[in-house]
Design a protein around this nucleic acid. Sequence first.
DNA 1: CGAACCCATGAATATATCTCATCGATTATT
DNA 2: AATAATCGATGAGATATATTCATGGGTTCG
Lengths: 300, 300
Amino acid sequence: MGSLERVHLAIVREVERQGSLTAAAEVLCLTQSALSHSMRKLEGQLGTDVWLREGRSLRLTQAGRYVLDVANRVLPQLERAEEHIRQFAQGERGTLRIGMECHPCYQWLLKLVSPYLAAWPDVEVDVKQKFQFGGIGALFGYDIDLLVTPDPLHKPGLLFEPVFDYEQVLVVGRGHPLSRASHVRPAQLAGETLITYPVSLDRLDIYTRFLTPAGVGPRRHKPIETTDIMLQMVASGRGVAALPRWLVEENAERFGVVPVKLGPQGVDKQIFLGFREADGGIDYLRAFIELAREHRDIHA
Amino acid sequence: MGSLERVHLAIVREVERQGSLTAAAEVLCLTQSALSHSMRKLEGQLGTDVWLREGRSLRLTQAGRYVLDVANRVLPQLERAEEHIRQFAQGERGTLRIGMECHPCYQWLLKLVSPYLAAWPDVEVDVKQKFQFGGIGALFGYDIDLLVTPDPLHKPGLLFEPVFDYEQVLVVGRGHPLSRASHVRPAQLAGETLITYPVSLDRLDIYTRFLTPAGVGPRRHKPIETTDIMLQMVASGRGVAALPRWLVEENAERFGVVPVKLGPQGVDKQIFLGFREADGGIDYLRAFIELAREHRDIHA
DNA sequence: CGAACCCATGAATATATCTCATCGATTATT
DNA sequence: AATAATCGATGAGATATATTCATGGGTTCG
């Protein structure tokens, strides 16, 4: 028997504030009669009076004082909730769940997030990197709202926006024989240890667009999780890796590493932001994509 | 526009638990249609959908997830509140606000409270000692529910139950000249320092029933707040005081004080518990009075 | 391909809510 | 002390709201 409704709490609170049923009715845009009936019914259902009727005024009973406490506690929660939902409706508030399918892009994302959070103080940002059914699956399954990916798998219901282009290069240590080459040929990696992020080979451009077409492979293959460790290992001559040129150049000084073009033409890449077509109207999502496009020049 | 009602929260929570509108409707003893209509209306008022309708199933939107959070937070509060109110109604729960008009009775009250709290775990006990309009006024004004007093001022609407009788005695230090007297006469206090609680003289029996009728007064009158300090001062020969015999005897060893009868007949007192007639049905209040009466023998 | 299942929807109905008019009682005014 | 003003309670009737019923369109599953 769920009898304690929001109205009842509102009535008790307002009667306390105004001092009488009649005055409270005025504020609540109802008649005194309506309040009286409502509360009488509630009292019947609760099995106890909320007010003692003495003379022409009301005095809270113990149960009534308790109801008032509940009202003062619960009503503000509901009011705040409605305000938040209104913000959800207007796209001012939300949680932007971003999925990453491109390891080095994490560095790029970090630069975007802080100005974004400043501009959208009521939006939470979540970043996920593991997906049971791939990034596209996560997008379809509503596990994420935005996917940072180099593979814009066009499907109905999804939209992809290119946000920046960059060149994928080989990174070698300063003392490496290739460090002064204008570019590297696939065969030149046959004796090297290749360091990559720990993902399947068909998601690594160094294989799909460089080594595999030429029919060669590295001497060894070593998966590493984090970009910093990867760069340190390259710097110390333990191997070579493939990373975005901008990322390498940014860290060239600090780590002592050198970028080398992959093949005479180089390997150009594009990163896309994918999202559900249905979400195209969400302000804070559009804003993120817009911000990403503005940052495009930086690594052009 | 207060549109987010308890039903809506209940529906969202139940749909999440059961997985579908239809199943939730079953649990809530309503039809699927009713839930659908209710939520559609709510969505209209909030300005945003709660669910995405995909195929034949529902998926929470961001706003919907938020509503679910609110439901999981607020509904238990309301449910607990209803349970508490039910306990209020049955007199299992409440706050017993006790007023004290008799300083030494505080010692007596303390002994009652702990067994009482054990027997009524859901009842809070408040003790108040200051009243703007006297203890009776506090009772009438609903500032307290129970008054511990030696003056049962009978008025319509109030009931008084005698809870214990005791003898008011003079307390003197062990080395005091009166310490071996069978009783003390008023004139014998003319040279003494009289220590009392800081209340008006007409509320002190040592005056109203002993000194004043005989037309004498003490050499000095010193008000003290606490019983312990009072006893210490008496023990060290700084004065004499009037207290219940049981209280003196209990502390005779510890402080080295001696009770002396006030006059040949002694001064007998009675303590009453006063309460509003209308509250006579409150279980936990009756229980307190009952407990007090049982303890009566102890100081008989 | 059909059966089962799910949600949406319009119309009808049931129920709950509110207003109106009025009363009795208390409090304030004169 | 008499009167006026104010307050809450209440029953009956009006209104609004919630619920059901019947149905349709769509999806999923066998």
